[in-house]
């Protein structure tokens, strides 16, 4: 089984629209995982029919039993997150600040603090219109541990792929370089980075590359909106050569991406399927397949 993770560093570079296009090209040979759990938009292009749904609990949250509390203030003393609110006699936990470390519960001499599992989000397994299964999630508001939800989405996708003998797992990852991204890297065979020739796209590409280097993961890059700025497009090309990353192709600045999105479609579908952009997307997918050593046939 091969696993391809699509990342971007900077947000808004077209990562999700492209991943959805790849998913259509891979068809029923792939299992799709939307690991951008903070902004899980891929389902808007994939027409999912939810087959299975479950609540996802991750991390814990302290709760003080007011009857049992003896107002000794030990919890307040040990909390590093300013999550214990107190007027000196009444003590309570502010859930937004509590990181669920459980230190307060362990030191409470009256056993008045319990750790309750906190709801991190909802997980869905759906059938999408490419004929594949897709695993996606909705992160709870302000939930901790989005990294754990990412891991859960990925593992679920891998389990499905094994069960149904699918050879490919295609993952839409998060922007940034923090815990959800790191969590999406484990077990990956190849990373596709979607960037844009802007000063921030360039800056964020280098940070992401540095992160991938720590994991020794092979990667290739797509330059979207390539005609926006020649200077940065060239800088990115040179950088890819220096770093021995695959140059997977370029896409022009094309408002049809948005036009297709409004229709709930990818750029590969009517009336956009014959455009230069669509042609390039198909070419990029060929290169990715070659780089990963997988083909649909």
């Amino acid at each position: 089984m091969k696993e391809i993770v699509v990342l971007s560093g900077k947000g808004g570079t077209g990562k999700t629209s492209l991943t959805a296009s790849f998913a259509l090209l891979a068809g029923s040979s792939a299992v799709v995982a939307d690991c951008d759990v903070d902004a899980s938009d891929m389902h808007l292009l994939m027409g999912p029919v939810v087959k299975q749904k479950e609540l996802f609990y991750s991390g814990k949250e302290a709760v003080i039993d007011q009857e049992a509390c003896i107002s000794c203030s030990r919890c307040l003393e040990v909390c590093r997150f300013d999550a214990v609110l107190s007027d000196g006699t009444h003590f309570e936990i502010e859930p937004v600040s509590c990181e669920g470390c459980g230190y307060c519960a362990r030191v409470c001499p009256a056993d008045a603090i319990s750790m309750k599992p906190s709801l991190a989000g909802e997980l869905y397994i759906s059938e999408v219109r490419s004929g594949a299964h897709m695993v996606h999630a909705r992160l709870g508001i302000g939930a901790e541990n989005s990294g754990k939800l990412v891991a859960r989405v990925k593992n679920e996708a891998k389990t499905l792929a094994t069960r149904d003998s699918k050879a490919l797992v295609l993952v839409d990852g998060s922007p940034g370089i923090g815990c959800p991204v790191v969590s999406s890297l484990s077990g990956a065979d190849y990373i596709v980075i979607v960037t844009e020739p802007t000063i921030s796209g360039w800056h964020d590409l280098k940070r992401l590359r540095e992160l991938l280097g720590k994991f020794r993961l092979p990667s290739g890059c797509v330059i979207n909106k390539a005609d926006l700025n020649d200077e940065y497009a060239d800088k990115i090309r040179k950088y890819l050569e220096e770093e021995k990353m695959d140059m997977l192709g370029t896409l022009p600045y094309d408002e049809n991406f948005t036009a297709a999105m409004v229709q709930g479609k990818t750029i590969l579908e009517e009336p956009f399927s014959e455009s230069e952009t669509a042609e390039n997307v198909r070419g990029i997918w060929q290169k990715i397949q070659a780089a990963v050593g997988w083909s649909k046939e």
Binding site: D38, A39, L139, I141, G142, A143, S146, S174
Partner: peptide, 13 residues
């Protein structure tokens, strides 16, 4: 940061 998870809460609260 973008999103709705813990780093965003830290900047909004």
């Amino acid at each position: 940061p973008p999103g709705t998870s813990c780093p965003v809460i830290e900047t909004v609260k």
